[in-house]
């Protein structure tokens, strides 16, 4: 306790609370620079914008808790959209389309989880390979990248992304529902405890009888399902199936999850943290757009921000290892 107190220098304060400060500064700066920033309409828009990437990031968070990563979400988002629009184009119902889309998410999760836990392959390599395969499948299926447009889109299809219930956009409701579900799973069930245990020490958890293969595979499946759900919302938003649509969300989801890790005191990924991370990145991009910053500067800013998050994450990790004497 004493050592913790004496190490509360400015550096430590910045490492632990600097992110909140940065968020505050960014928000204040944007509201001063652009009058359009701090309006109800824009803030609701902002929430709707980040809802897709946040759902992806929630799934990613589960996988990161288990000590892995899921890069294939980038492909699943696009595949789910293509699957849904294909079913709708062929005259199938919305429910069937969504089920098919979610099944693709499950499929990717099963493949990733099995390869990681049974074939003992590096999660990075497994999921980057499934990402590449998923991306090329989309290009092959759309014959070089032609989007699927719907001639007569069903009304309830449009409702998923554009509708409102009691003034709140439907994507935001979906976001909150997924948050609630995963929160219960992580904090109020044995599954969440096991998942955290595996992430912090896989040997110890295996020795204490946790079936890590099943639990980790299920995390990958949930990640696939979240990505597919995000793909459904996205395709409803653009009213078409766009191949490779998920590429842009991948790095944001990773960044959001890691930002969640750096704001937690013990350095563990959490859903609330991920939510905050996603909000931070969303505010940055929203503000830069309002200020008419060209898109390629935004790409640079995003890369820079995420590298900065990783930097703080690594510094905190090193600091904790000093404190715990590891």
């Amino acid at each position: 306790m004493k050592s913790k107190f004496s190490s509360m220098s400015i550096k430590n304060l910045l490492l632990n609370y600097g992110v909140y400060l940065a968020f505050l500064i960014v928000c204040v700066a944007f509201s001063l620079l652009s009058p359009a920033f701090l309006t109800t309409a824009n803030l609701l828009d902002l929430l709707r914008q980040i809802s897709i990437v946040t759902v992806v990031a929630f799934g990613m968070t589960l996988v990161i808790i288990s000590g892995g990563i899921d890069l294939s979400t980038g492909a699943v988002v696009g595949i789910a959209g293509l699957a849904l629009t294909t079913v709708l184009e062929k005259g199938g119902g919305l429910l069937v389309g969504c089920l098919v889309a979610l099944l693709f998410g499950v499929l990717f999760g099963v493949i990733n989880g099995t390869l990681v836990t049974r074939a003992n392959m590096n999660p990075f390599i497994v999921t980057i390979a499934t990402l590449l395969i998923g991306n090329s499948l989309q290009i092959v299926y759309t014959r070089g990248g032609l989007p699927i447009y719907l001639m007569i889109p069903p009304k309830n299809f449009m409702f998923i992304a554009h509708g409102r219930v009691g003034g709140i956009p439907v994507p935001v409701i979906i976001l909150l529902m997924i948050f609630g579900l995963y929160y219960l799973l992580l904090q109020r069930s044995s599954y969440g405890r096991y998942l955290y245990a595996i992430g912090s020490n896989i040997d110890a958890s295996e020795l204490s009888g946790i079936k890590y293969r099943k639990i980790v595979t299920f995390a990958y499946i949930l990640s696939g399902i979240s990505a597919a759900l995000a793909g459904i919302v996205l395709s409803s938003r653009v009213m078409s199936g766009q191949p490779l649509a998920g590429e842009a969300y991948l790095l944001d989801a990773i960044g959001a999850s890691f930002m969640g890790t750096i704001i937690s005191k013990v350095g563990r990924p959490s859903l609330l943290g991920t939510m905050f991370g996603s909000l931070f990145i969303g505010v940055m991009m929203n503000g830069l757009t309002l200020l008419n910053v060209v898109f390629y500067w935004q790409e640079f800013a995003k890369g820079f921000l995420i590298l900065f998050i990783l930097l703080i994450w690594a510094l905190q990790k090193a600091q904790r290892e000093v404190v715990t004497g590891k």
């Binding site: 288990s66 000590g67 892995g68 990563i69 390869l115 990681v116 836990t117 074939a119 003992n120 392959m121 590096n122 999660p123 990075f124 390599i125 497994v126 980057i128 390979a129 499934t130 590449l132 395969i133 991306n135 090329s136 992430g199 896989i202 040997d203 890590y212 293969r213 980790v216």
Partner: peptide, 20 residues
């Protein structure tokens, strides 16, 4: 993409799940 998976599956032989 398929080649990458094949090459890695055939060349990896660790015994426990790999974590990052």
């Amino acid at each position: 993409g398929i080649l990458i998976i094949l090459v890695i599956v055939t060349s990896s032989r660790s015994e426990k799940m790999v974590q990052i």
